[in-house]
């Protein structure tokens, strides 16, 4: 069964994409979680959906256009991230308000584009819940490019991103260009979300960015270790989830996220056991 992942080209594409996404989603997710911005991932994934729906509509109405829904999705996601930043500046004391505004605008646009494109079809279903077969070679190359760019930028700006996440005021006092770094961060988030949607789907992409981190935070010491465990859990979820999805013929989004949930429950249980055993040691 496993060899079909290596031999069949369409499965191999999905498998490789999964490995890339399992790496970048928790990598960026760690910054998102510690900044308490988990919901931004949700808002952006819905904006990406409207971009995908826009692409599907173009495809339907114009037929055979050069831009596939995947790329219109990336475009909308990046635009959405810029809008969130603007809104957060407009509503300084209600910064979280940007999230429901962008999320509902995304869903609203999606509904309109989808109905113009004559409604629901299999293609859209793949975008909502992920797919093990929907990844073309061009998509794979694009996602590889995104993954490399995101990783390099995070390595280069790691110390600034870390500082901004921990204490924005202190970062500003020290002369860090908080706005520019934050802008970079939100655009990277948009790119990672658009890339991840191929595998886990619109509805579950934020889960892949947050669940591995939620598990990691329970057991890690320090920020770097949190990132490493998050990636480890993210990769495990994607690989196990993809194989299970293929085997049971379920969209992989569901199996990937459930694997991540199981890992999360596992780490919570592990922490409890550890606490109890150290308590026993003290008592005896």
């Amino acid at each position: 069964m496993l060899e079909s992942f290596i031999q069949l080209p369409f499965l191999r594409n999905a498998f490789l994409t999964g490995i890339l996404v399992g790496f970048i989603a928790p990598l960026l997710g760690t910054f998102i979680v510690v900044r308490r911005l988990s919901l931004i991932a949700d808002a952006l994934s819905h904006v990406t959906l409207s971009g995908i729906a826009f692409g599907l509509m173009l495809d339907k109405k114009l037929g055979g256009v050069a831009i596939t829904p995947f790329y219109t999705g990336i475009g909308f996601s990046v635009l959405g991230s810029i809008f969130i930043e603007q809104l957060r500046r407009v509503y300084k004391s209600y910064q979280e308000l940007a999230i429901p505004i962008i999320l509902s605008a995304g869903v609203g646009l999606s509904v309109i584009f989808i109905s113009i494109a004559n409604g629901f079809n299999q293609n859209l279903f793949n975008y909502l819940f992920g797919s093990v077969v929907a990844v073309s070679s061009t998509d794979l190359w694009t996602i590889l490019f995104i993954a490399i760019a995101v990783t390099i930028l995070i390595v280069i700006f790691y110390k600034e991103l870390f500082m901004l996440s921990f204490d924005e005021e202190h970062a500003v006092v020290s002369g860090i260009h908080a706005r520019r770094i934050h802008f970079l961060f939100i655009v990277l988030t948009a790119l990672v979300i658009a890339a991840s949607i191929r595998i886990v789907g619109v509805l579950l992409v934020s889960a892949l960015m947050t669940l591995p981190v939620a598990a990691s935070i329970r057991i890690a010491k320090g920020f770097k270790q949190t990132i490493m465990y998050s990636i480890l859990f993210g990769e495990a979820s994607v690989l196990i989830g993809q194989i299970a999805g293929y085997y049971f013929e379920i969209p992989p989004g569901g199996t990937i996220v459930l694997t991540a949930v199981l890992i999360l429950i596992g780490t919570i249980g592990f922490k409890r056991l550890k606490k109890r055993s150290s308590y026993k040691k003290v008592m005896s």
């Binding site: 510690v34 870390f162 500082m163 921990f166 860090i176 920020f223």
Partner: peptide, 23 residues
């Protein structure tokens, strides 16, 4: 702020102090 920062933030003492050198 030291008593109101996000105490759940996963950063070691070393990592926090390193931020003083970032800029």
């Amino acid at each position: 702020k030291a008593n109101s920062f996000n105490t759940g933030f996963p950063a070691t003492v070393f990592e926090v102090v390193s931020m003083g050198l970032t800029s």
